[in-house]
Design a protein around this nucleic acid. Structure first.
Length: 804
RNA sequence: GCGGCUAUGGCGGAACUGGCAGACGCGCUGGAUUUAGGUUCCAGUCCGAAAGGGUGCAGGUUCGAUUCCUGUUAGCCGCACCA
């Protein structure tokens, strides 16, 4: 009988040690068992360590993992470290410590913090993206892409962070500044490694239909991929060349009164000789070139442009000669870099037309094009459109697209907003790109037997001012020979972006020590796809999209067994500071999990972070409320004082327990850990009211609570000599029939207003219930002398009598 | 501007498929224990004396609406000239 007080410090250290020593949470190699793969996004080991927010997803899925193990599943719940990248490198430079050492220290600290929470990770499968035996396979995947033309080098304008001295992916530029450091991002033309994610755009979009992701993730990914259907068609010009455009509104072709091309459009140079105002055009192009994308967006609230003098386009439907403009509101990177402008039915074209005094023609009836563009496609009818007049927009689209095809000037076309992925960084702390530049053979892949291409240990890893990677300064490393012809050659000096290592890490967990493949076929077939993946919303258009792309590629080359890596995706809400603001060092509102664990214990910490509210919603930390969870655990600890013999449930509690088992079982699968805990609290209150608990009841209670508070439940189980350990037990079963109550309380309403209550047998026939309801004193008074219109009995809920 | 989400007591939050709004916890009030504070235990706690009224606001559908529909306000997140 434990009469000593609840001491989480001692208990938690003891059980964490035992779990580690016994390896009880290691996924089993027995592939005949039913598998369950739960995954959280592996953390970035930053110098600041973890804050309480990290505990939310870790604990949330830990509860699922622990429960699934008790249910007999072979559970894989792993963790590792996404350790390459700029924060570590910047920290290293600032403090004059090598990034490798910084990484090692940060991991050691973060690992202690995670372990203090008592998460049931399989530490035998811990991985680290900076480990050569890991990035060997990151490089290997890159080479497979390179060999199939999906990794290519291209001279292009890129986002350049002026502070990090490094290119950024489009996804990493937020509001015109670097997502990571907040400094200005400008355009810079550089030769860059790219990955052809656009080749997978259609599948990345369509395959969302087959996976169980929360809606906001799906809709954000769909929006980012940006699939649109329209038509691509050629306008003849007075210069002889055709000008090709893309439009989603081919129906408005009769309303096209001018054309606009992007400043970077190649036809401008071809037309140089014909352009009377080429100097002015050049001036505009130079100005546009200098601006960052963000400035271009900002400044062009007011549209600017230059009319090309000397070239006009011909509208194919009516032969009208229309002017061609150059404006930076048209982007070279989307569609064909040129548009037909329909000011009557496109807001941007309308604004431009107003600014330059261009005619506005109404071709869809429904708005007032003199006041603003009418962009609705649902309701309008075509006018001023020759053979399209009188049709709906949809009908007109079909007819004109057929007409365009018939004339041989264009066809229906699908476009995507998604761009190829800029896959190189001019920094030190990343995976070296395993290729060699040979003056004779061009860019040559390193033979696979030379992987991993190790990142050289260097003294100086600071970014250069030339825009090259610091690796470029290592003459000995850079100088090599061509694997194909043996001639002197240079190594690629750019490294991979941080997103590389995380694009496939979930595969490595399946078989983390394999040296012959990224993971064995058997292991992948057994574990994949991930059953449940939880992570932050901020990764929706980055890591989550990138890793789906890599996985589809690996599927195509026969490495991955399915084309989608994650069967289910959820996302935790952010934990804000006590002041309701985002936790940050500068605000001084960061709550450190170590402090909470010291003061209350890990079980209380786990319970509170789950009890704080809806898992998916943002929640503010509240230190004052934590003690409620500690109190609950103290009361559970005190149950031993109420213990009476008996292995079964007492009759009065049988239903209570069956309902609690059902509630906790279902709520945890729905990630509603808060209401599961509330149900356990309510059950505990009932037990205290009754003054006792049987051994059988306490066993069930401890099993239900175990996923939430694993340390104290194990300790009680052991002290009470319940036999074995909780981790060896089975999750309690419930009987649906025993969940229903015999007698129930129902409400009696008159015209929807509550009048009284009735305690009746659950299966009492409707007629008898209605009779009892009418006899209920308050109700009888309310219906006296009135005419009964209708009577409702909602079984087990209420009676509503409608009178007049 | 576009896309998505949210709004419930003093606070965090519950509420199945349209069926008793406020479960559970914090806080607060009163009482018991204690020299006292803390802890623990008991009782109470949406507003209102009551009738009644209450889920951001205004309508609608319904016997019945926190839940469905229309409009509107406020806030959060994402995207931002994608033709």
């Amino acid at each position: 009988m434990p009469s000593k007080p609840y001491d989480p410090k001692e208990i938690e250290a003891k059980w964490q040690r035992r779990w580690e020593e016994s390896g009880v949470f290691h996924a089993k190699q027995d592939f005949s068992l039913p598998p369950y793969y739960a995954l959280i996004e592996f953390p970035y080991p930053s110098a600041a360590g973890l804050h309480v927010g990290h505990g939310r997803p870790y604990t949330g899925l830990d509860i699922v993992a622990r429960k699934r193990r008790l249910q007999g599943y072979n559970v894989l719940y792993p963790i590792g470290w996404d350790a390459f990248g700029l924060p570590t490198e910047n920290f290293a430079i600032k403090n004059h410590v090598h990034p490798e050492l910084v990484t090692r220290n940060n991991i050691a600290h973060a690992k202690e913090q995670v372990q203090a929470l008592g998460i049931s990770y399989d530490w035998s499968r811990e991985i680290n993206t900076t480990d050569p035996s890991y990035y060997k396979w990151t490089q290997w995947i890159f080479l497979q892409m390179f060999k199939r033309g999906l990794a290519y080098k291209k001279e292009m304008a890129v986002n350049w962070c002026t502070s990090c001295k490094c290119v950024l992916a489009n996804e990493e530029v937020v509001g015109g500044v670097c997502e990571r450091c907040g400094h200005e991002v400008i355009r810079k033309t550089k030769s860059q490694w790219m990955l052809k994610i656009t080749e997978y755009a259609q599948r990345l979009n369509d395959d969302l239909d087959g996976v169980d992701y929360i809606d906001r993730v799906k809709s954000q990914q769909r929006y980012w991929i940006g699939r649109s259907t329209g038509a691509q068609l050629r306008f003849a010009t007075t210069a002889g060349d055709d000008l090709e455009i893309y439009t989603t509104r081919p129906d408005t072709l009769f309303g096209a009164t001018y054309m606009v091309i992007s400043p970077e459009h190649p036809l401008i140079d071809a037309w140089k000789e014909r352009l009377a105002n080429f100097a002015e055009v050049e001036e505009y192009r130079r100005a546009a070139q200098k601006k960052s994308d963000f400035e271009r967006t900002e400044i062009n609230k007011d549209k600017t442009g230059v009319r090309l003098q000397g070239v006009a386009a011909i509208n194919p439907v009516n032969g009208a000669e229309i002017p061609v403009f150059l404006s930076d509101y048209v982007l070279i990177s989307y569609g064909t870099g040129a548009i037909m402008a329909v000011p009557g039915h496109d807001t941007r074209d309308w604004e431009f037309a107003k600014a330059y005094g261009l005619p506005v023609v109404e071709v869809v009836v429904g708005g007032d094009v003199a006041k603003e563009a009418f962009t609705d496609c649902e309701t309008g009818t075509m006018v001023n459109s020759g053979f399209l007049d009188g049709l709906t927009v949809d009908e007109a689209k079909k007819k004109i697209t057929a007409w365009i095809a018939e004339k041989g000037i264009g066809a229906e076309k699908v476009n995507f907003r998604l761009r190829d992925w800029v896959f190189a960084r001019q920094r030190y702390w990343g995976e070296p790109i395993p290729v060699v530049h040979c003056p004779h053979c061009g860019t040559v892949a390193l033979p696979e037997d030379q992987l991993p291409l190790q990142l050289p240990m260097v003294e100086n890893y600071e970014p250069t001012d030339t825009g090259e990677s610091p690796l470029a300064l290592l003459t000995d490393w850079v100088s090599t020979t061509c694997p194909q012809c043996g001639a002197p050659a240079r190594r690629e000096t750019d490294t991979m972006p941080q997103w590389a290592g995380s694009s496939w890490y979930f595969l490595r967990y399946c078989d983390p020590n394999n040296d012959a493949a990224l993971a064995s076929k058997e292991a992948l077939e057994y574990w994949m796809p991930v059953n449940w993946y939880n992570g932050g919303m901020e990764h929706t258009t980055l890591h989550l999209l990138y890793s789906r792309f890599w996985h589809k590629f690996l599927y195509d080359i026969g490495v991955a067994p399915q084309s989608e890596p994650y069967a289910k995706r959820t996302s935790q809400g952010m934990i804000l500071g006590e002041d309701g603001e985002k936790m940050s060092k500068s605000r001084g509102n960061v709550v450190n999990p170590d402090d909470i664990i010291n003061a209350f214990g890990a079980d209380t910490m786990r319970l509170y972070i789950m009890f704080i509210g809806d898992f998916e919603k943002t929640a503010a930390w509240n230190s004052a409320s934590v003690k409620g969870c500690r109190r609950f655990l103290e009361r559970v600890w005190g149950l031993t004082e109420l213990l009476t013999p008996g292995e079964g449930y007492r009759p009065a509690f049988e239903g209570e327990f069956h309902r609690a088992i059902r509630k906790v079982s279902l709520d945890t699968e729905a990630l509603k850990h808060n209401t599961a805990i509330a149900a356990l609290m309510a059950l505990l209150n009932g037990i205290y009211e009754s003054g006792s608990i049987t051994r059988g009841e306490l066993k069930t209670f401890l099993l239900l609570l175990n996923p939430f508070a694993p340390h104290m439940t194990e300790e009680l189980w052991e002290q009470l000599r319940f036999g074995g350990r909780v981790t060896d037990q089975s999750w309690p079963a419930y009987d649906e029939a025993k969940c229903t109550e015999q007698t129930i309380e129902i409400a009696v309403q008159v015209c929807g207003k509550l009048k009284g209550k009735l305690v009746i047998a659950a299966d009492l026939p409707e007629a008898e219930v209605l009779a009892l309801a009418k006899a209920e004193p308050k109700t009888a008074e309310a219906i006296a002398g009135k005419q009964m219109v209708k009577e409702f009995y909602i079984k087990g809920r209420l009676v509503n009598l409608v009178v007049k």
